[in-house]
């Protein structure tokens, strides 16, 4: 007991032992398995043969799959951009509201986010479906359009669903950055002959970049790995990498290839994150 009191490192490990062992077994080991499986041959009835191969990795870059990969990237980037364009002014609006209204608005923002993602996606399904969706039905009833608009089963629907799902996580870190922003800095800029626009461009925007980066990452990563949204709003036609991965486990029983796909996806995310960080740090320095 005395030794424990004197040795903080021992104390730390005593506290950490249970959670660390748990994560090592049930998180790190599975991660390692995916890595190993990526280099193994596929078994006849699911499972794997313990033979080393690079075939799975090569197949990821096969145009057949790689096209989906690029498309997923595209969708994730567009989603992130739109979420940023929609989310920034919203964060700005909340941050510039009177303090007593601010927390109410934040909760109003978070309630949809705390609502099940599946449900929120389903809500859009009922709105977007081509012949029976509320939007097309209403527009045709009102005689605004004659033929239903192509709102469903395409990239538009997926992006809309993703933007809707992840908008709150974009807003939150930007809000935090804007709220931290010292108001006297803006007054100083205005005092030094900057118009509202220039004060924003030269002071507010560069100082909110950390929030923009955090928000973008929080939207980009789950968008790239999206599974539910394309599964429901893609209408079985428009797929993303998440669906291809799941197919390898649910339908095709090609576990090594599924593992390789998710390995490449995670590495791609890592690279994108690093590039994005570098780029924003540089643009911040230039401001």
């Amino acid at each position: 007991m005395e030794r424990l009191r004197r040795n903080p490192e021992l104390q730390a490990w005593l506290l950490l032992a249970a959670p660390v062992i748990f994560l090592l077994i049930f998180f790190m080991a599975p991660l390692l398995i995916v890595f190993i499986y990526s280099f193994l041959e596929r078994g006849k009835y699911g499972g794997v043969e313990w033979v080393f191969t690079l075939e799975n990795i090569r197949r990821v870059f096969d145009p057949l799959y790689f096209r989906t990969f690029l498309r997923s990237f595209n969708i994730a980037i567009i989603t992130t951009l739109i979420t940023l364009i929609l989310g920034y002014p919203l964060a700005y609006f909340i941050a510039n509201s009177p303090p007593h209204r601010r927390s109410a608005l934040l909760f109003a923002l978070m309630i949809p986010f705390w609502t099940n993602f599946l449900i929120r996606t389903y809500a859009w399904l009922t709105l977007l479906r081509t012949h029976t969706g509320l939007i097309n039905v209403s527009l045709m009833n009102w005689g605004i359009i004659e033929k239903p608009l192509p709102l469903f089963g395409n990239d538009f629907a997926i992006i809309l669903g993703l933007v809707y799902g992840w908008l709150p996580v974009m807003v939150l870190p930007i809000y935090a950055a804007l709220e931290r922003l010292d108001k006297s800095l803006l007054e100083a800029a205005r005092d030094l002959y900057a118009s509202n626009f220039h004060a924003f461009r030269r002071v507010t925007w560069p100082l909110s970049i950390p929030g923009v980066v955090a928000g973008s990452m929080l939207v980009f990563i789950p968008s790239l790995g999206a599974f539910v949204t394309p599964a429901i709003l893609g209408g079985g036609k428009s797929l993303m990498i998440g669906n291809i991965i799941s197919n390898q486990f649910l339908g095709a029983h090609d576990w090594p290839f599924g593992s390789a796909l998710s390995m490449v996806m995670m590495i791609a995310m890592l690279i994108a994150t690093v590039i994005y960080f570098r780029w924003t740090v540089k643009s911040e320095a230039l401001a």
Partner: peptide, 27 residues
């Protein structure tokens, strides 16, 4: 404020943290 011929020295200085001293003065 940007169209008034006055300038202010703020209580907490309000120096732009992301700009160098020279950039601050040049603003």
């Amino acid at each position: 404020p940007n169209k008034r011929p006055v300038n202010t020295v703020f209580q907490n200085y309000a120096l732009f943290p992301h700009m160098t001293v020279a950039k601050n003065v040049a603003f």
